[in-house]
Design a protein around this nucleic acid. Structure first.
Lengths: 328, 328
DNA sequence: TTGAAAGCGCTAACAG
DNA sequence: CTGTTAGCGCTTTCAA
């Protein structure tokens, strides 16, 4: 039918006919059926965002951004959760059977809390475009948008050192998490830059939850010679450190300095608001969605193209709030 | 084909044949195409969750719960955002054109921040099952799962009064929000119960954001005779009140008591964690999804059936943390 | 218990 | 520029 052409803004329709069709459409209140269209076109305009149930501020901000860009690009967003098995890995079969032939045009995989190569391999074989957010080892053929975790962590550590901190505690993420590893590397680099010896006792493993931040802080603050500042690998854990400090009647930043990572809204909910690294979630979501939508990754000063299918956002931005004391 | 019967666990297939088909399915790694199935069946197993971009903790917790139950019931979840026009209403045409014939089996509408009758009317005419979360005026034919906002607010206010508070500040939500109205009503009732006169000066309007909580607190704390406690209509605003109090060097609960509403994770991130009303988000999501999925609303002690299509969760539960001083 | 035929509502490819 | 034909991959209805 010519109707289809009108609906799809196809080039070749005589204005008069188009008018007539449009009129009928309005009259009948006609709406095309998305299912049928998808079936015929073999594309669904559906993008899947894989979600894990750690209800983190990061994920929720990512969702809002992805939602915005997917609407702007005429897509719809499906959320699929990524049920984890008890041993912290993913059940690939289950994931496939839910995603396969859902007809998703694309899949966005947010940063994983722990490494899981298998998962990425499986997803890349589904017949949807896959874009991974965050670090990924190897697998150069997989599209991804990453963040300069190492550079940012290095900058933040330098920031603390510049303010006279020498004993700095580090609250890491889960040990398999690639972003976490990169952040630790940046931390170590900055210390080395300033000839400060690495002290493994000052490095405590967390799991990105507030609670783990509390525990880590307790460990660090119980030391004979506690650190003067604590660098946390995400905002939730930084909030946990604040809670632990307050519980002991310590005042931030007078008695202890704290920094976070991500600049989610948590960092301004606490008292004091804490200094943190801004991760440009919206920008990264936009890049991912643009690529999904068939576009190329754009050129921009903030962005390095590490390869055809891999861009990295390089903005290193420290958001200063009131959680770091200047000791100098 | 018989294949279809096997896939749909249809009754009448000879075991031997079934076996043979199943084998072929496994062999070929065959997966049914969801689009085609939906087209033929006129049902999609797709549920839409309408999301507004106020990235609130409430919404994000609702999402996680909805996701869980929708997976368990074999559905998929689509998130659609509800773009607001500048004057705070919704653009019905836009919403319809995005939702109509997406083939959604059902739509879940979270509590609105402001009243918007038009929206509900429009949605109810889409050909998907609609379930509204939260208060709704009139419209008895619309399925909904609501919460005892009034009873909870009344209980919380009584809790404050029992601890010796007489001048209690109230930070409301937007004035059109029905849940907010019910909460205010509960607040007023409790005061009246105890022969405490209502003082309009102690009631400040917020908009559910942290920032509005800060502003409201400043107003209240600047009064000649400031309140001894502040009751906030959600957790974000309570967090804002805490920030404002801290800024003035006041200590909570020594100098001022604060309570929230919803028991989102914000209430344990702050220092001190604050006392709040638990809203059973997961339970409400489960009820909504069960109803979507064709089930009836279940019977339960916690739940009142206000009508065929309207259940209310009656758990009134105060989660005590450390933000309320006992003045007695 | 199984198979054949028709059609869900659209778009692709071609012909007029 | 417009209409025709076929078919997307499944389910339904009816016949065998």
């Amino acid at each position: 039918m010519t109707v289809s052409r009108v609906l799809n803004y196809s080039s070749a329709v005589k204005p008069a006919t188009r008018e007539r069709v449009q009129l009928a459409i309005d009259e009948l209140n006609y709406r095309p059926n998305v299912m049928a269209r998808s079936l015929a076109r073999r594309q669904s305009l559906l993008i899947g965002l894989l979600y894990h149930n750690a209800s983190s501020a990061y994920l929720s901000e990512l969702l809002v951004s992805t939602l915005k860009y997917s609407r702007e690009l005429g897509h719809h967003l499906m959320i699929e959760d990524l049920p984890e098995t008890d041993d912290g890995t993913f059940d690939s079969d289950l994931i496939i059977s839910r995603l396969q032939n859902l007809g998703l045009d694309g899949i966005i995989l947010p940063p994983l809390l722990s490494r899981n190569e298998g998962l990425v391999g499986v997803l890349s074989e589904l017949n949807s475009r896959l874009v991974v957010l965050g670090q990924l080892e190897g697998a150069p053929q997989i599209a991804r948008v990453s963040f300069d975790d190492r550079g940012s962590a290095r900058a933040m550590t330098r920031y603390l050192i510049d303010r006279g901190h020498r004993r700095i505690g580090f609250v890491s993420g889960l040990k398999d998490c690639l972003a976490g590893k990169a952040r630790k590397m940046g931390f170590d680099l900055a210390l080395t830059d300033h000839d400060i010896p690495l002290n493994p006792d000052l490095c405590v493993e967390g799991d990105y939850t507030l609670r783990s931040g509390v525990r880590a802080a307790e460990k660090l603050l119980n030391m004979d010679e506690p650190p003067s500042a604590i660098f946390c690998c995400n905002d939730d854990m930084a909030a946990g450190v604040l809670v632990a400090a307050h519980r002991r009647g310590m005042s931030v930043p007078k008695d202890i300095s704290v920094t976070g990572f991500d600049d989610t809204y948590i960092s301004s909910i606490t008292w004091p608001g804490f200094t943190t690294i801004r991760q440009p979630i919206a920008q990264m979501a936009e890049l991912a969605m643009t690529f999904m939508s068939g576009g190329e990754f754009p050129q921009d000063d903030d962005i390095t193209r590490l390869s055809d299918k891999h861009v990295q956002v390089n903005t290193v931005e420290i958001i200063e709030r009131d959680s770091v004391a200047d000791l100098t």
